[in-house]
Amino acid sequence: MQITCDRLTIELGHTEIVRDLSLKAAPGAFIGVIGPNGSGKSTLLKCIYRVLKAKSGCVYLNEEELESLTYKESAQQLGVVTQHNYYNFDFKVSEVVLMGRAPHKKQMERDNTEDYAIVYDALGKVDMYDFKDRVFSTLSGGEQQRIILARALAQRTKCLILDEPTNHLDIKHQLQIMELSKKLGVTVVAALHDLNIAATYCDYLYMLKEGQVVAEGLPRKVLTEEIIGSVYDIRAKIIEDVETSMYHIAYLPNIG
């Protein structure tokens, strides 16, 4: 499934947060959206997952205009992991994940064994099967984040939208979530803070600043010392490890 954003402009309370932005995620590609705080990453993603409406421009899933789909139809194709998931009521973990099956259900349809199998499968994939009977609100931030990913997996969609999926996670689970999302082979659009994570896992990067794309391309083309320096207003150094041919970004302190 291909996601295309065509010249999106998004306003929040009369301020343009995203301006004339175009983005394309080819089927099966892992697309990273990076940029400093307030650069419009989350706003862009919110527009793709339909919580915000664009002032102008359009989002397409394959050839179809997103706005022409019902919410149910789009939820069958887009799984979403957002940043803030605080619930005022005590849900069990398995109940939260089971909600991921909702887009595939008719109003009166009951949950069947297949749905439970998918739920437990998703929980297994994020390493949280043993937590299935725990109360969601008693889990730590990182554990909650993994449950929300499991819910998106339970949707069995061809695209995933991840809004800073590695927030609150320890290193192991940061890598695990990224690897898992990549292994699924679905189209992923992820807003990421950690440039090293972006360099390691993304096929293609969009660097945003003040609501516009300032650089795009393969990670090694976008994550250069010059571009990082000018966008984030810091000094960065790129280190390439000979042994693993890994690409690392080090941030240099201004003092000393």
């Binding site: 919110k46 997952y49 339909r50 919580v51 019902t70 919410y71 149910k72 139809e73 789009s74 939820a75 069958q76 887009l78 799984g79 979403v80 957002t82 998931n85 619930y87 005022n88 009521f89 849900f91 109940e95 939260v96 909600m99 991921g100 909702a102 887009p103 259900k105 109003q107 009166m108 819910r151 949707q155």
Partner: peptide, 23 residues
């Protein structure tokens, strides 16, 4: 009784519900 799924959805809020296919 027939609306349990949507009622559950209400507790997780409007934004999440949209991503799960229910307005």
């Amino acid at each position: 009784l027939s609306q349990y799924r949507t009622l559950n959805m209400m507790l997780v809020g409007d934004e999440t519900s949209i991503t799960l296919g229910t307005d």
